Amino acid sequence: MQVFAASPSGWLTYGQTKVRCSIGKGGTKPAQDKREGDGASPLGVWPIRRILWRDDRGPKPESGFEATPIQCQDGWCDASIDPCYNQPVTHPYPASAEHLWREDGLYNVIVVLGHNDDPVVPAMGSAIFMHCASEDYRPTEGCVALAEEDLRALLKLAKPGDAVAFIA
């Protein structure tokens, strides 16, 4: 298993490679203390589940993981009391759900991480992804973000069983 480690210092390392990243605006916190909306990245090692990408913005990422094109109605439920909490949903959706089809490019490529998904526990954090960074690498809502070029390069190396770690 290969682990891609994201640190609060703004670097993600894998092997001998080190690339710039951003993490949650709330810094990092122990996974058991993570709460929906706190902006923190959960400390721990989270398996890579699958890839989503905007096929109108670039080719399918080269990777050993399942990759699914994002559709304009795709979302991810962040309503803690909803039965679909921390799961993909279709918009319009009756509860709070993030839109995955974004104009800002941050979700051109999304790597879904296995945080709070087996089992899903209400209010313990949803939609912890690895995704594209803003040009200024501003902090995320709890995810890890890389330049799209770096993210695509990392995915070429990633294999089933690999994971992303948030470290202190």
Rank of each mutant, 00 (worst) to 15 (best):
C143V: 13
A95W: 02
I128H: 09
G114T: 10
D118E: 10
G142S: 14
L106D: 06
H91F: 05
M130S: 14
E103K: 08
H99I: 14
D136M: 14
Y107N: 07
R102E: 08
Y93V: 07
E135C: 10
D118P: 03
H131D: 11
S96K: 13
A123I: 08
V121I: 05
G125I: 00
V120I: 04
V89Q: 02
L100W: 01
D117C: 13
H115N: 08
A133K: 07
V120N: 03
G125Y: 01
H131F: 11
L100M: 10
N108P: 05
M124E: 04
V109F: 01
E98Y: 03
H99C: 10
V111G: 09
E141M: 15
E135R: 09
E135A: 10
E98F: 00
V109Q: 00
G142H: 13
P92T: 07
M124T: 09
P122Y: 02
A127E: 06
D104F: 10
Y107P: 05
A133Q: 14
L106M: 08
Y107F: 01
A133D: 15
I128K: 01
Y137G: 13
V109S: 02
S134M: 11
G142Y: 12
N108G: 08
L100T: 01
Y137I: 12
D118H: 14
D104E: 06
M124G: 08
I128F: 06
S126F: 11
N116I: 00
N116E: 07
N108C: 09
S134N: 12
I110M: 04
S96P: 02
H131V: 12
T140Y: 13
R102N: 11
H91P: 01
N108V: 06
G125A: 04
